[in-house]
Each structure stands twice: as C-alpha cells, then as structure tokens.
Design a protein around this nucleic acid. Structure first.
Length: 278
DNA sequence: GCGACAG
DNA sequence: ATCTTGTCGC
C-alpha cells in the first residue's frame, strides 16, 4: 500500500459540524470482522502539546512483539488547528500522527492508538479514523471511558470485561497490569475485539498499565513538546530513525496516502475558532 | 435545563 | 492534554 488508496484522503480544514458529518460517512468503512494473523510489530501513536498548545507533537514508536522491543520511531510537529471537543479528537491529532507515520522507516503490522476506536458516540474514534484512512489494522487504547459502561474485571492481568453502550458491546475494560485500573480497548479497523485485546496485552509488559509502544510515544512526545522547538523536534526524529534502522538493517519503505505534509507551516484557511476549555 | 465528556 | 508538591508504596 504505497499511495494507492484514493478514497482515503480528505480535507482536515473542517468546522465541528462538518467533522461530525464526515465521521458518520467514514464510519461505514470500518471493518472489524476480518481475522488478523498475529502481528509481529505494533506501532504506538500518541501526541503532546507544546507551550501555549500552539503545536501538536506526534510520535510513533514501533515495537517488535517478541521480544517486546523498540525498533523504530518517528516524529512530526504541526500547528494546532482544531479545538479539543470530546468525540472529535481526530481533527486535532490525526494530521500530525499521519505526518509522523509517513516518516517511518518501517511499516508496522498494526497501530495501537492512544484514544478510542469503535467505543465512540458515532463509532468512529481516532483509531478507526487512522485505520480507515491508511487501510491498516488499528486498535484503540484509552485511559478513560468516552461512552459506555462496564463492570470491574477481576484484578489479575489479562482479565477483561465488556464495555457496553446500551445493548451493544463497543469495547473492553482490560487489565494490562494486576491491581491497577484497566485500560479501555476497542476496535479501530480490520481487527475484531478479541484480537484488539490480545494485541494490547501482547504489547504490555505487565510492569505498567500503559502498553509499551504507547508509553514510549507518550514519553518522547512530552519530552519534545516541553522543549517547545518544532524544528529541533523533527530533526531529532531523523537522528533516532537512522540510529535504529542502522542496527536492524534496511526497512521496507513506508508511504501513506494522506495529503498532510510533515512540515505543516502553512496557515489553515479556517483556523481553530475557539480555545478548548479545562 | 442539567450533566457527561478520549486527549 | 497541561498546570503542579508532596506523598504513599514496592
């Protein structure tokens, strides 16, 4: 899949009302019925915001599952152009994450996203959005619930209970580490819930609540965001990538099909019209 | 009208 | 998410 999907591209310069309509349309493309052969590599995706919340620092951390180890990383920084609105996270974070994915040296078998997938008001959270645009398997892994209710799973790592929104099972509360709060897993795209849970557990060491790929993406994005220098952050990603790819040999090229650029310096025609609260 | 509300 | 000090526990 190297820039061959035409349908998987759209404008990000939308109003909240337009964004909601787009989600309703794209939600029809989510596929959670396909069986997934066990992935060998999983990419953790997360973002952090720089000083004044002016820029989004996106990081992708690719891990091999056995053994669980970091094999590649990439960074992208873009100006913030959309407010934080529960249910519309994609329009604030996805452009930067897609830009980071484009700079990756290796193509991961699956995406593990910091946020929900199907467990969303319109069944189209950030993980679904990325999976559908890239046409690749993705899993949503959030630290708190957006929609739905669940019963506490027993304390042992590996245990889980369904997350239900009305009669529908939209995800699962998964215990990635014994004795701590569960994480909330849901289908992103091209995986079923059982696989999504397995992938989340496989990416978790058991020493921390957050799966390793997401911990690393979170750690690096926050570190770079604190520096507050977009240009330096992007340069840093190149250094890291050449370093890791040198040790593991040449990696297959990665190309996404999205129109976003890695350097996003051009001003949007329709900038964020209000600041997020809280 | 009053909460709830991924990051 | 980000802003922040100390504190409880392995």
């Amino acid at each position: 899949m190297t820039g061959t999907t035409q349908a998987a591209r759209h404008d990000w310069n939308l109003t909240p009302a337009e964004a909601i309509q787009l989600q309703r349309e794209l939600a029809g493309r989510v596929r959670m019925d396909r069986l997934l052969r066990p992935p060998e590599t999983v990419a953790g995706l997360d973002v952090a915001f720089g000083p004044g919340r002016s820029h989004v620092y996106a990081v992708v951390a690719v891990y091999r599952l056995t053994p669980l180890e970091l094999i590649d990383r990439s960074v992208a920084v873009l100006p913030v152009t959309f407010p934080y609105v529960p249910g519309l996270l994609s329009f604030r974070e996805a452009p930067a994450l897609l830009a980071a994915l484009e700079q990756l040296a290796v193509r991961p078998d699956c995406l593990l996203v910091d946020g929900h997938g199907y467990a969303h008001p319109r069944r189209f959270g950030l993980a679904c959005h990325l999976g559908v645009l890239l046409e690749m398997p993705s899993v949503g892994c959030a630290k708190s619930v957006l929609v739905g209710q669940y019963e506490e799973p027993t304390p042992e790592r590996g245990e889980w209970t369904p997350l239900r929104d009305g009669d529908e099972v939209v995800g699962a509360a998964v215990r990635t580490r014994s004795g701590v709060r569960p994480v909330f897993v849901s289908v992103g795209h091209l995986v079923d819930l059982a696989s999504a849970i397995q992938i989340t557990l496989a990416a978790s060491s058991g020493k921390y609540r957050i799966p390793e790929p997401l911990r690393e993406a979170d750690r690096l994005s926050r570190m770079l965001a604190r520096e507050g220098d977009p240009r330096l952050a992007q340069r840093y990603s190149r250094v890291v990538r050449s370093r890791t790819s040198r040790r593991h040999g040449p990696a297959p090229d990665y190309r996404s099909d999205v129109t976003t650029t890695a350097r996003g310096t051009s001003a949007r025609r329709r900038p964020a019209r209000r600041k997020s609260k809280r």
